[in-house]
Design a protein around this nucleic acid. Structure first.
Lengths: 223, 223
DNA sequence: CATTCAATCTGGTGATTGTTAGATTGAATC
DNA sequence: GATTCAATCTAACAATCACCAGATTGAATG
């Protein structure tokens, strides 16, 4: 990198951020971290990569100052270095969706049936949830729910969903969400719920997309 | 790139956008294109790189669908494929500024004197310009001014400024702007104006930053 | 002190990228 | 048709990067 503060020096620094966004794996890690802070082990498991590779990618993200670390005994917790990083991820993903037809097509194929997708806008969904007209469930792992979730949402992790069906009022309309448009957990939740006779839909929003549109996020500070 | 529409396939597409943002030269080209459509020759001149290299970088940007082309005789005009691309550039630059101290430092050193920078917020500057309390001048090349400029701004290209000083009311307060925070043209304009006895300041905003904050852009459609 | 285990570091390989320079295309003009 | 010139294509090079696998660090635990 150049040393004098000439013009290209400025672009080189911005390119550092760009570089860290140029690897699919790093983007996946970034999206996982947008759900809340996690250890390297958790990240490598959830992103399905070797822990040593995850560590290398996280190092790159840390050198670009997009993530920070915190030591807790043997574990090192990674987190985004600010809410603007999650916002950047959303902006990048939305731009990709807007201009890359292949991506839009792949995303459209991901939803199992068209009527599985809740078409309501965010504000009116929020209102309905507030009034109890729909039950909004968060099917991510409980730790991610605790780190921040949609208002009025109930934590119903996907792998506990089947055991906890009784917790849901049988005649209610259920709307599930997960980590975002790229995540399949809410799809699987809808499939399961419909099999069991529930009226269920999903939204593609995760907490990042929700927050990026200016809506509030609730947190459980159980420290 | 993977063919099946599995999960990593989605991230790979977003990473295509990230990759195109990972080179300083490409970012510089992108910022230039945010000022309006330009030919390869113009871009290579303004970015100070070989035309063949510019062409190669533009090819990469086109393959990521961030730019589009239009043929006009011997010339090929490049333009951003949407306003969201300019927005993405602003978001990326702001995130870099927020987290990379080195970048913030280099930017701070670029302004010749602290009092050269107009600290007013955008709305009140707009109001003052509307009322004629300040003269806002656009020191970019005229073609860029015509492609879109701040409301109430007057085109005063830097290389014509000295000849056209008489056009400016002598007792007015002048505020200059150019392509954005990385551009030095407004600095040089302020230096020149102060040498000639004017009361002059600059703002770091370009049209992208102005538009990104939700404020209007005026265009001269002289087709 | 030895063991365990999360996390990082190191070296190595194949693939990709930025840059340069020469050759080529393709539309306009003489 | 030959020429001009913007723009792209091609080949080649060094540099960088993603990924893998083995070795190492460092905090906790027995």
């Amino acid at each position: 990198m150049t040393i004098n503060p000439n013009k290209s020096y400025l672009y080189e620094h911005v390119a550092r951020i760009g570089k860290s966004l140029s690897s699919p794996k790093r983007l996946e890690l970034l999206e996982l971290l947008a759900q809340g802070e996690k250890t390297v082990e958790t990240l490598s498991t959830q992103a399905d990569i070797d822990m040593r590779l995850a560590s290398a990618h996280l190092k790159a993200l840390r050198e670009a100052r997009l993530v920070e670390t915190r030591r807790d005994g043997k574990y090192i917790h990674y987190r985004l270095s600010g809410p603007d990083v999650a916002q950047l991820w959303v902006t990048l993903r939305e731009t990709a969706e807007e201009h890359l037809v292949e991506l839009r097509l792949a995303l459209a194929q991901m939803v199992s049936a068209p009527d599985c997708l809740c078409t309501e806008d965010r504000e009116s969904l929020l209102l309905k949830a507030q009034q109890g007209d729909v039950v909004v469930i968060d099917v991510r792992p409980a730790a991610e729910f605790n780190a921040g979730h949609l208002p009025f949402a109930r934590s119903m992790p996907l792998d506990e969903l089947e055991q906890r069906l009784a917790d849901l009022p049988a005649d209610s309309h259920v709307v599930a969400y997960c980590r975002g448009p790229f995540c399949v957990m809410s799809d699987e939740a809808v499939k399961l719920l419909r099999d069991k006779g529930f009226s269920a839909q999903k939204i593609t929003d995760g907490v990042c997309e929700w927050a990026a549109s200016g809506l509030p996020i609730e947190m459980d500070n159980l420290k």
